[in-house]
């Protein structure tokens, strides 16, 4: 095989690698999942902070919450609008899962879609929507 053929073969491999997403996505819509807002959340009307802000920063907020709750014993978060929230992931009505009743529809669909890492929250915190099954 001449050098030119070898290089062409190499370039073909490179082309396939570069366009890999196109091939793998072929025939799939690749559409984003619908984010389902649970009834309870709809009723509440608003989240802790604005929707956009929460979408981008909820993990940092939760990280902070868990420290404040565990280490300072404070359980109430006063949002920017002055509303008060129970800093809890899953315990009771005024917690995250109190509104967003289904983790599968609310957390997982988006996390799976964006691939931002596996949630290890539920290794300890109880997810009622899964516990009941």
């Amino acid at each position: 095989m001449s050098d030119k053929l070898k290089v062409l073969a190499g370039l073909l491999v490179l082309a396939v690698l570069i366009t890999l997403p196109f091939w793998l996505n072929a025939g799939k819509s690749g559409a984003a999942p619908e984010i389902v807002i649970a009834e309870a959340a709809k009723k509440a009307g608003n989240c802790v902070e604005s929707k956009e802000w929460m979408a981008a920063n909820h993990m940092a907020l939760l990280d902070q919450w868990r420290d404040v709750v565990v280490r300072e014993g404070k359980h109430i978060y006063v949002s920017e609008s002055g509303q008060e929230f129970n800093m809890s992931l899953s315990s009771g009505e005024n917690s995250c899962l109190g509104c967003h009743t289904s983790t599968a529809e609310f957390c997982d669909s988006c996390h799976d879609y964006t691939g931002v890492g596996t949630l290890y929250c539920w290794e300890c915190h109880i997810d009622p929507s899964k516990e009941n099954k």
Partner: peptide, 14 residues
């Protein structure tokens, strides 16, 4: 907002 980012990148990839 990573969700929107992925919507965009997926639109490019498809």
């Amino acid at each position: 907002d990573i969700f929107t980012v992925k919507q965009m990148t997926m639109s490019l990839a498809t």
